[in-house]
């Protein structure tokens, strides 16, 4: 089973987790920029965090044979703090980096005016940098937050296929599916979604535009929930190819829209030292 975890906060995880993830088949992941648990109090604190996402954490993941990519944004919770909101003006410096494959996590926490302003501005940045957007949906009043999210996405002009609306459940999945956005599911030990409910949703809706993630962070969470969902799919009668589609090919298709995924070193699909007609086969060079 090869696994691409499309949403996991590795900065909060240990090297034991990296080893266990690799053993379970995880070869690539996306780490979205988010809240750290402890509120930040200034813009510089964000910049050091972003530097870590495009620097140290990427290096750390590579030591364990896992390709690390990230998303960059001002998260909805801290969009409410005027001491932090100015970081939006510095995001363009990071949105052009090779390892940055989306703008995110953007979206709503408490559905304030400040959150809506930051959300709309960052959707504009996604359009400007031709990047997908990863949208967090609120823990509280999720249904209303998801509805307003989809209105803002439509108004932004960003194609629905460039947007993943994350942390969905049985109540919110329908409207996201109808809007044509990608549907993200965070499989948690005891909140949001579990692997057996996930399997039922896949049985009802099919495998199109579905991303399954562990969203593991500093809270109680499990970085192997992607693998456990794959196992639950197999036990429910899905094929190996179905599992590969949900856990690998879907995230590759979604984040591949950035033009910035580099997976050859981990997927075994190319020999980096190979030559073709005397030339190195160099990766990229598409845009």
């Amino acid at each position: 089973m090869r696994i691409f975890d499309p949403h996991i906060h590795m900065s909060s995880r240990t090297t034991d987790d990296y080893e266990a993830m690799h053993a379970a088949g995880v070869r690539a992941l996306v780490e979205p920029a988010f809240w750290l648990g402890q509120p930040r109090t200034n813009v510089g604190s964000f910049l050091d965090y972003f530097d870590s996402l495009v620097g140290w954490e990427r290096f750390r993941a590579a030591q364990f044979g896992i390709a690390h990519h990230c998303t960059i944004a001002l998260n909805p919770k801290e969009a409410n703090d005027p001491r932090c909101a100015e970081v939006i003006d510095l995001l363009p410096r990071y949105l052009d980096k090779d390892g940055v494959v989306a703008v995110g996590e953007v979206g709503f926490d408490s559905m304030t005016e400040a959150e809506e302003k930051a959300f709309a501005r960052q959707l504009e940045l996604a359009v400007e940098f031709a990047l997908p957007a990863m949208v967090h949906t609120p823990h509280r009043d999720k249904e209303a937050g998801t509805r307003r999210t989809l209105e803002l996405v439509e108004a932004s002009g960003l194609a629905p296929g460039m947007v993943v609306v994350d942390h969905l459940n049985e109540v919110t999945v329908g409207q996201v599916d109808d809007a044509g956005c990608w549907m993200g599911f965070s499989i948690y030990p005891d909140t949001k979604m579990d692997e057996h409910r996930m399997v039922r949703i896949l049985q009802e809706r099919g495998l199109d535009r579905v991303l399954v993630n562990s969203a593991a962070d500093w809270g109680r969470s499990d970085p192997l929930k992607t693998a456990k969902t794959g196992q639950a799919m197999l036990e429910a009668g899905f094929s190996d190819d179905d599992v590969d589609r949900v856990l690998w090919r879907n995230p590759v298709e979604f984040f591949g829209q950035s033009g910035r995924l580099v997976l050859e070193d981990v997927a075994g699909s190319a020999d980096p030292g190979a030559t073709f007609e005397g030339n190195s086969i160099l990766r990229g060079g598409r845009d």
């Binding site: 090779d98 910035r260 980096p272 990766r283």
Partner: peptide, 10 residues
């Protein structure tokens, strides 16, 4: 590098 390509040079 996204415009030129990346990887080892033979």
């Amino acid at each position: 590098a996204r415009r030129t390509g990346r990887g080892p040079l033979a």
